[in-house]
Structures are given as structure tokens and as C-alpha cells.
Design a binder for these strands. Structure first.
Length: 630
DNA sequence: AGAGCCCCAA
């Protein structure tokens, strides 16, 4: 029996749902030989089938060859493009359709808005919005929901809000879209308010609404609220939903509760690649990078195929562990898995090689990237700064702008770091001017980098001026201004800022105390230094690292408290590094304490028998002792 | 035809 066009269309539909491209092509051949190719229903079904099977070329060819097209054909080709990542082309078809006199319907508008949203193409989005108003689709619930999403993705929260508020009818999807727009635009509190409002309005809260609420808690790092929403999820029975589980893992990680995150992950009945990515990311974000890499191995053993995001998370862990070997192994897996073309993967590789000190490999990855963005340029600039090639960093900063990329806050911060390490005040001032022009100077990362740059260039007044004008401050920028004061010999000012910072509710960390100790070292108040050192463990729940010890040893040494310094070294809870003994040796030489100096030298040479500095300092001590005796 | 989870540069 000869198949009619109805059976052919439903056969194509089946292929579409199963992504069965070969079978689809056979049916296409049958359609041509039976002479059904001219019917628009058949053509539309072919376009949809090819699109879902990932063959955009065939979908486009069918569309081009159609003798008659209807609105549905245009919708099909537009969504075929979006589905296969060709969003600009989708918008081109949208324009051509209009030019050929077809009236877009609600489906067309939704597809076009989706393309605008993923491209963050706000001008085009506004144009589509105007066309929607003109065609009277503004009150259509699905179209309006798409508008909310588009404005949210384009960073226009106000517009998303006003579309949402004017909607005559909303459902749970509209509410979730609005919550998501809030999360994407730094208004997580508003998202949580919407979540409560949904309950008051008796709108059903499904897994997506819960995921949006969890996302808001993650951004706020609000563990208490997160626990409450977790409880509600259990109550409503959404606990076993994979996406909800993934969002829970992420939320607990961002709230710094690795315990909770691991518990959720362990109990998940189903896991997908994203679940693994989430737990790997959470471990490396919570200074458990080794564990992150173990999970990466475990994931592969369990048969999951790592994707671009997996590689990015694993490379981040290698970078913070400075584990070059593992990083290279993962680089191999990336090439093998065909992910080396992805921009985020390339950027993560640059970062990893940079942190591991192999600038040349970072450069190779950068040079081979087919496609670059501001982030990859910035990563390369940062890698140069880190590896003491600040000049190259500034070259790249210029080159990137010649290539048409506008620096953002992070790029500016990297370039300013380069100036700081070169103590290049003039270049720093030039970049400062550029940040003002780009309206970036108030952003925390930029202002912090400015404070740091001026501090290192010896211009404390400018550093203070930038700091005083910052609209928002975080711990890092407080540390930067305290370090700038300490570095420039303004110890008292540093300590005053430290007190002020605590009054503003900031808890000091290890870096704060390092600067404070440096400040004491300049003003020479030994007792204050001892006090700060002790208070780290006694009042602030911190542990001292070698740098803190070195700083205090230096202060004791300068003040001539050599016995204290030596006792202090002997009491150190870790293995004594050579430089600790060298510091003592140096001060012994200055103060002419021959006996202690020889002891320090013996320790230094014990841990590093070929250390030239130790020999030089020791011979200085002998020489001075000789002079004194003579 | 609409909403959601993991992700690169300080």
C-alpha cells in the first residue's frame, strides 16, 4: 500500500523524537519519489526532523527548496537555527519573513526572543518587542514570559519587571522566569520575595521554582534560608529530582557548607554529568581541590563522559594545587574528548598553565585558540603578571584593544597589577583614566587594584583617595589599603584602618594580619606585633602560616630580640624552611651575635647545604667578629 | 511556543 502524506508526516515526527537521522533521510527519499515534496505540511515536518537530528544544513535546504511556504515553515526554519546554535541566522530569517509579507505569530515571536536572549542582543530584542506590541501579542502569556526572559538575560531587570507586572495572566512559568531574571541581575532578595508571593497567591511551586529559590540562596550565601527551602523541597517531594539535587549541591557549596553538599550528592538516587560537575566545583571552591580531582577520576570510572564544564572545574583544582602533571593529563583528555575548541576550556587551560608557572604553554594554548573573548585575553594577561612578565602583560592589554575587545573590570585589574609590579606610576595613572572613561573605577575589583597599584608605586595619598571614594567595599580592598599603608611606613594609619574595618563588620583574614605585622615592622612596636600574632588564633580563629612567622621573626630580629626570635622559631609547629633560619642569621649578623648566628647558619645549611646566602652571611659574621677582636 | 542545575579572567 502506498503511504499517504499523513502517514509520512507522522513517520517523520517519530524520527524527530528519536533523533533517528538515517531513517529520516530514507523517508525523505520516499517523499520525493512519491511526489509529496511540494506540500508545505510535509516540508515543515522535514525541517523539524532535520533540526532535531542536528542537521541544520538539510533543514535549510528543504526550506529553500519549498515551492510554497506558510508561517509554520518560517517558524520551523527559525527554530531549527536556534536549536543548532545559529542564533544570528534565526534572526535573519525572522527579518526576511517580515520582508516577504508573512505575519509572525506567537510561535515566531517566542523563537525570535529566545535567539535575542541567548545572544544578549538587546537592540534586536526591543525591536521584536515593538513588533509584538504592534501585532497585539503583548498580552499573550507565553510571549510575555519570553519577553521577561529576554530582558533578564540582557541585563534589563527594570524592563523585565514592567512586562511581568503588566501581564494580565501569569502562570508558574512566568513567575519562575521573573525569579530567574532577578537572580541574573544581582537581586536575589527580590527573587526570594517573589517566591513567597507565589505562595500567597497560591501559585503551584514546582521543581523549577524551587531551583530558582535555591539559586537565590546560593548568590546570597544564605545557609539558613537554604536549609528552609531544602526542608520545603523534601515536604513537597521534589528531593529526588536531579536538577533540584544539583541546585542543592551548588547552593550548599556557595554557602560554604561542604558537609551538606556532600550529603546531598551521596543521597542522590540519579546523577548526571551536571551533578558531578557541581560537586567537583563545590570541592574546589571550598579548598578541597584534591578531593575535587578524586571525584573527577571517580566520575570517569563510573562511566560518565566529562564535558567542557567538567574539564574547567578539574583544571581549576589543578591550578590551585599547582599540580602540573594532573593538569597535563586533563589537557590530554580534553583533546581526546574534542573539547579543545571551547573558549572556557582554553581559558581554564591558560589559567592552569599560568598558575603552574609554565607561561610558554599558556601562550601556546592562547595562540591556538580559534575564538577568544575578553575573559581569555584577561586570563593570558593575568598569567603574564603572575609569571613576572608585566611588560608582556601590558603589551597584550594594548593588543586586545586593537583587536576590538573592550577591557572589563577584570582586565583593568590585571593591567593595574602589571603596573603595580613594574612600579609604573605613569602607566597606572593612564589606566586609571581609562577606567574612569569606561565607568569601571567604582567597581570593587578595579578600585582594589587601583589601591594596590598606588600603594606599590609609593603614592599612598592616591591609594587612600581611591579607597575613600569606593561605593562598596569588601575584605580584599580593606586588606589592600592596610597593606598600602604598611608598605609606605604608615603603621599607625594601618592599625586605625584595621579597627575601622572591624567596626564595619568585616572579619580579618590571614592577609589582613600579614599587612598588620608588616605595619608593626615599620613602626617597630614589638609588643603590638606579638599581640596581633597571638590574637589571630586567640580571637579570630585563624592559623598562622610561614609568612606570618617570617614577619614576626623579622620584627623581633630588627629590635634585637634575638633570643626571642630563636625560641620562636624552635616553637614553630611546622617544618622550618631555610628562609626562616636565613632571616635569623641576617639579624644575628647585623647585631653581631656570632654564637647564635652560627647556630642559625648550621640549621640553614642543614636544610639546604648549597645555600650561597647562608655562606655569605656566615662569612660576614666571622669577618665582623675578626674586626672587633682586632 | 515559554521558566531551572554545573562553568573561564581579579
Amino acid at each position: 500500500m502506498k503511504p499517504n502524506h499523513v502517514t509520512l508526516v507522522s513517520a517523520l515526527d517519530a524520527c524527530k523524537n528519536k533523533a533517528a537521522l538515517e531513517k529520516g533521510r530514507q523517508i525523505h527519499a520516499a517523499i520525493v519519489s512519491e511526489g509529496y515534496g511540494g506540500q508545505s505540511v510535509v516540508g515543515n515536518a522535514l525541517i523539524n526532523m532535520y533540526a532535531k537530528c542536528g542537521s541544520l544544513d538539510s533543514a535549510r535546504n528543504v526550506f529553500m527548496g519549498m515551492p510554497r511556504r506558510d508561517v509554520i515553515s518560517w517558524n520551523a526554519v527559525i527554530s531549527a537555527c536556534t536549536l543548532n546554535g545559529h542564533r544570528e541566522e534565526a534572526l535573519d530569517f525572522f527579518d526576511r519573513m517580515h520582508g516577504e509579507g508573512f505575519k509572525p505569530d506567537e510561535v515566531t515571536f517566542v523563537c525570535a526572543l529566545d535567539a535575542c536572549a541567548s545572544l544578549a542582543a538587546i537592540e534586536k530584542g526591543i525591536e521584536v518587542h515593538a513588533a509584538i506590541v504592534e501585532s497585539g501579542y503583548e498580552d499573550h502569556m507565553i510571549v510575555a514570559t519570553s519577553l521577561v526572559k529576554m530582558y533578564g538575560k540582557c541585563g534589563k531587570l527594570d524592563d523585565a519587571r514592567s512586562v511581568f507586572n503588566r501581564m494580565p495572566k501569569r502562570n508558574k512559568i512566568s513567575w519562575s522566569a521573573m525569579m530567574s531574571a532577578c537572580n541574573q541581575n544581582a537581586c536575589p532578595k527580590e527573587a526570594l520575595n517573589l517566591f513567597t508571593e507565589m505562595q500567597h497567591n497560591r501559585i503551584e511551586q514546582d521543581q523549577v521554582a524551587f531551583v530558582c529559590a535555591l539559586d537565590a540562596c546560593a548568590i546570597l550565601a544564605d545557609l539558613e534560608q537554604g536549609h528552609k527551602i531544602h526542608a520545603a523541597i523534601v515536604r513537597e517531594g521534589y528531593e529526588d529530582h536531579v536538577v533540584v539535587g544539583n541546585a542543592l549541591v551548588n547552593m550548599y557549596g556557595k554557602c560554604r557548607s561542604l558537609e551538606d553538599a556532600r550529603n546531598v550528592f551521596q543521597r542522590m538516587p540519579y546523577r548526571d554529568v551536571i551533578s558531578w560537575n557541581a560537586i567537583i566545583a563545590v570541592c574546589s571552591q571550598n579548598v578541597q581541590s584534591r578531593l575535587a580531582l578524586d571525584l573527577y577520576d571517580q566520575m570517569r570510572r563510573e562511566g560518565f563522559k566529562p564535558g567542557a564544564v567538567t574539564f574547567v572545574c578539574a583544571l581549576e583544582a589543578c591550578a590551585s594545587l599547582v599540580d602540573l602533571e594532573k593538569g597535563q593529563e586533563i589537557h590530554g583528555a580534553i583533546v581526546h574528548g574534542g573539547c579543545d575548541g571551547e573558549i572556557i576550556v582554553g581559558t581554564a587551560l591558560i589559567n592552569m598553565y599560568g598558575k603552574c608557572g609554565i607561561l610558554e604553554d599558556a601562550r601556546n594554548v592562547f595562540n591556538r585558540m580559534v575564538c577568544r573573548d575578553v575573559v581569555s585575553w584577561s586570563a593570558m594577561i593575568a598569567a603574564c603578571v603572575l609569571n613576572n612578565d608585566a611588560k608582556k602583560a601590558l603589551d597584550l592589554f594594548n593588543q586586545m584593544q586593537c583587536n576590538g575587545f573592550m577591557p572589563d573590570q577584570f582586565t583593568f585589574a590585571c593591567a593595574l597589577d602589571a603596573c603595580a609590579s613594574l612600579a609604573a606610576l605613569e602607566k597606572g595613572q593612564e589606566i586609571h583614566a581609562a577606567t574612569i572613561k569606561a565607568q569601571c573605577e567604582g567597581q570593587v575589583v578595579v578600585a582594589t587594584a587601583l589601591v594596590n597599584m598606588y600603594g606599590k608605586c609609593g603614592s599612598l595619598e592616591d591609594a587612600r583617595n581611591v579607597f575613600d571614594h569606593m561605593p562598596h567595599r569588601n575584605l580584599v580592598c580593606w586588606n589592600a589599603i592596610i597593606a598600602a599603608c604598611a608598605r609606605n611606613g604608615h603603621g599607625i594609619e594601618a592599625i586605625e584602618l584595621f579597627k575601622h574595618m572591624q567596626c564595619c563588620g568585616f572579619k580579618p583574614d590571614g592577609a589582613t594580619f600579614l599587612s598588620l605585622l608588616a605595619a608593626c615592622s615599620h613602626s617597630g612596636t614589638v609588643d603590638e606585633a606579638r599581640h596581633f600574632f597571638k590574637s589571630m588564633t586567640e580571637h579570630h580563629g585563624l592559623t598562622q602560616n610561614v609568612e606570618h612567622y617570617l614577619c614576626l621573626i623579622d620584627i623581633l630580629g630588627r629590635a634585637g630580640h634575638l633570643k626571642d626570635a630563636e625560641d620562636f622559631i624552635n616553637d614553630m609547629p611546622y617544618e622550618k624552611e631555610t628562609r626562616v633560619w636565613l632571616s635569623l642569621l641576617w639579624h644575628c649578623q647585623i647585631h653581631g651575635d656570632m654564637e647564635r648566628g652560627i647556630r642559625a647558619a648550621r640549621h640553614a645549611l642543614n636544610s639546604d647545604p648549597r645555600n650561597a646566602t647562608a655562606y655569605v652571611l656566615l662569612s660576614n659574621i666571622y669577618a665582623e667578629a675578626g674586626t672587633r677582636e682586632a
